[in-house]
Design a protein around this nucleic acid. Structure first.
Length: 591
RNA sequence: GGGGGCGUAGCUCAAUUGGUUAGAGUACCAGACUGUCGAUCUGGUUGUUGCGGGUUCGAGUCCCGUCGCUCCCGCCA
């Protein structure tokens, strides 16, 4: 090694030792005679001193140091005089009096300050274009090491439980359902393509059919869909599958994995088992299938209270089988009317006719455009059910349950954030179980909510043909702070049941053979009952790190348009490469 | 595909109703300075106002288009 110590480890115990440090010049403080260099590496910062009375030669070289020069500084560790100690630095009790210096490399002036506080304010596209500089910041290095600890925790935990880590192919077959595939042209057969996996879904089921019993993989997945702050086109899943299991077994394993991840991330022990609620409960109480359970402000059902109301807006909805529900936002009575207008727009986007509200004023009176239509009895019941107090803001929605839930679910989050009701630094996990097997797509056709290999709830198979939308699946999500961390299910394990599901979906036999023939065939050779789940490692790392964006826990992330600003990918390829893979580019017609 | 925000010096930002030579802090360069740690002091350099077009006597500012970044909705079996 070119160094004897890192820049983060020297302390008073090393006083008197001769050391060699390597790193980047963070700052130069030149006093004309003595000069101070903050030398930085991944482990920390150490102050180096160059004094012409120690070594004229080294001091002379140090005169020309600039930010981000890479050097080796050699000298003797000294205790700092007590008044000169720097408590902000782990190594602040000492400094290294240097008599030798080697400049390994100069640096151009960095395009942005690498100081953690300053860099956080610099536009992200510039930082992404110079990601190798951005990565020198302590906070990004910390996130990378955190991620490593998490992966290690997962590997240890699952290996100890008898899981085998198996790699599955990256070049695989395109499946038109689900997310859009990233595709790879095949040179060896013109007009054919591989696809990058959206998830190792079918491979892991086939591993169960291969007798692997317990599989896991920290697997890269690819989806060509539009991005978000918590979505990248390529991302990493903690993917696992088990044979001869019920959902209980999956919950137990994931509970343990998450406890190990929390410990590895320095967040201490969590209580197990993690809380659970059914999908119906989540929708009713939180208006979301990924409820943020860090705070209350739950949705209350007022339909019974208004069963015989003279307020027509509510009455008519109830008559048509709709519901009236509300959220009580504590302490937000003084919210600007502008915010309520914005929320009303949002409610309308979700399909509501409008948004009714009550603001409870200082004197306890209710300020509201609708309350005059409520009977005394209705008002008394409202007050009781919603626990209405001075300073509250109550938001009402009346419509079909799904519309009411969607609107109030979003409003609860927005209003909760505005009311500062969501505590920082809290980790609130919950399982959401018994997802519906089907939902209607935009055209009203039946489609699977999870994937077409999901097994129905054992009690609900009878409804498959008669009332499919009421069929519950053996499908579950694990949710943390309102973020969907992972999703899984018990799978169908015999070909007859699988065929029955394809039929319910309106997929003809021939097409099912075409698309999933390999899986159907494997099922017919003695597939064990099996099930599994996949957790988003990037999202989990983001939450563990307290980061605002998934990009902060990925070494080389892509932008919202899926480009890598540093590599300048994607890019065009030359004509020969295109010919090799039998492709011709069709460009949009010039106007 | 739709909606919102942003784009001015290397960086972070300012620039009155459309008005004269586009400023500040920082960075950078030079000089001074032997205990700083956001070092300090003195002086100095730095602009395709993202790009293209239009309106106007005059555009950083208004209009149209376009590119990039970002947040959200759709989408993500």
């Amino acid at each position: 090694m070119l160094r004897t110590h890192t820049c983060g480890e020297l302390n008073k115990a090393h006083v008197g030792e001769r050391v060699d440090l390597c790193g980047w010049v963070a700052t130069v403080r030149d006093h004309g005679g003595v000069m101070f260099i903050d030398l930085r590496d991944r482990y920390g910062v150490t102050q180096a001193i160059f004094d012409p009375t120690d070594s004229q030669e080294a001091w002379q070289v140090a005169q020309n140091l600039r930010a981000e020069y890479v050097i080796q500084a050699s000298g003797v560790v000294e205790a700092r005089p007590p008044a000169m100690e720097n408590r902000k630095l782990a190594t602040g009790a000492i400094e290294v009096r240097c008599d030798r210096i080697t400049v390994y490399n100069k640096s151009r002036t960095p395009p942005f300050p690498l100081d953690d506080g300053e860099a956080a304010r610099v536009s992200e596209d510039l930082r992404l274009a110079y990601r190798y500089l951005d990565l020198r910041r302590a906070s990004l290095q910390k996130n990378l090491t955190l991620r490593n600890k998490m992966s290690l925790g997962v590997r240890e935990c699952l290996t100890e439980k008898g899981f085998t880590e198996v790699e599955t192919p990256i070049l695989t077959k395109s499946t038109p359902e689900g997310a859009r595939d990233y595709i790879v042209p095949n040179r060896l057969a013109a007009g054919t393509f591989f696809a990058l996996p959206q998830a190792p879904q079918q491979y892991k089921q086939l591993l169960m059919m291969g007798g692997t019993d317990r599989y896991f993989q920290i697997a890269r997945c690819f989806r060509d869909e539009d991005l978000r702050a918590d979505r990248q086109p390529e991302f990493t899943q903690i993917d696992l599958e088990m044979s001869f299991v019920t959902p209980e077994d999956i919950y137990e394993v994931i509970d343990a994995v998450l406890a190990s991840v929390m410990r590895a991330s320095g967040h201490g022990d969590i209580d197990l088992p993690l809380p659970r609620m059914t999908y119906d409960e989540a929708m009713n109480r939180y208006g979301s299938d990924k409820p943020d359970t860090r705070f209350g402000m739950e949705i209350e059902d007022l339909t019974a209270i208004f069963a015989d109301t003279s307020f027509k807006v509510f009455g008519q909805v109830i008559e048509k089988g709709g519901v009236v529900k509300a959220v009580n936002v504590k302490g937000l009575a003084g919210v600007p009317i502008r915010a309520i207008e914005d929320w009303t727009e949002l409610a309308k986007d979700e399909g509501l006719g409008g948004l009714a509200f009550i603001r409870v004023q200082e004197d306890g009176t209710w300020k509201s455009p609708i309350v005059k239509f409520f009977s005394d009895e209705e008002q008394a019941s409202l007050k009781k059910v919603l626990n209405i107090e001075v300073g509250d803001l109550v938001l009402f929605a009346a419509d079909k349950p799904a519309t009411v839930h969607a609107a109030l679910g979003r409003l609860r989050l927005l209003a909760g954030a505005m009311a500062k009701a969501i505590p920082d630094g809290k980790f609130s996990f919950t399982w959401v179980t018994e997802f519906p097997l089907f939902e209607n797509d935009a055209e009203g056709r039946l489609q699977v909510m999870h994937h077409p290999f999901t097994s129905a709830h054992p009690e609900d198979w009878d409804l498959l043909e008669s009332d499919p939308l009421r069929v519950r699946a053996q499908a579950y999500d694990i949710v943390l702070n309102g973020v969907e961390l992972g999703s899984g299910s018990i799978r169908i394990h015999n070909p007859e049941t699988q065929a029955r599901l394809f039929k319910a979906l309106g997929i003809p036999d021939e097409e099912a053979q075409n698309r999933f023939g390999h899986l159907l065939k494997a099922l017919s050779y003695g597939a064990p009952p099996h099930g599994g789940i996949a957790l988003g490692l990037d999202r989990l790392a983001m939450l563990m790190a307290g980061a605002q964006s998934i990009r902060d826990v990925i070494a080389f992330p892509k932008t919202q348009k899926a480009s890598d600003l540093m590599m300048e990918a994607p890019s065009t390829i030359d004509e020969k490469q295109l010919r090799d893979v039998h492709l011709e580019i069709r460009r949009p017609e010039a106007e």
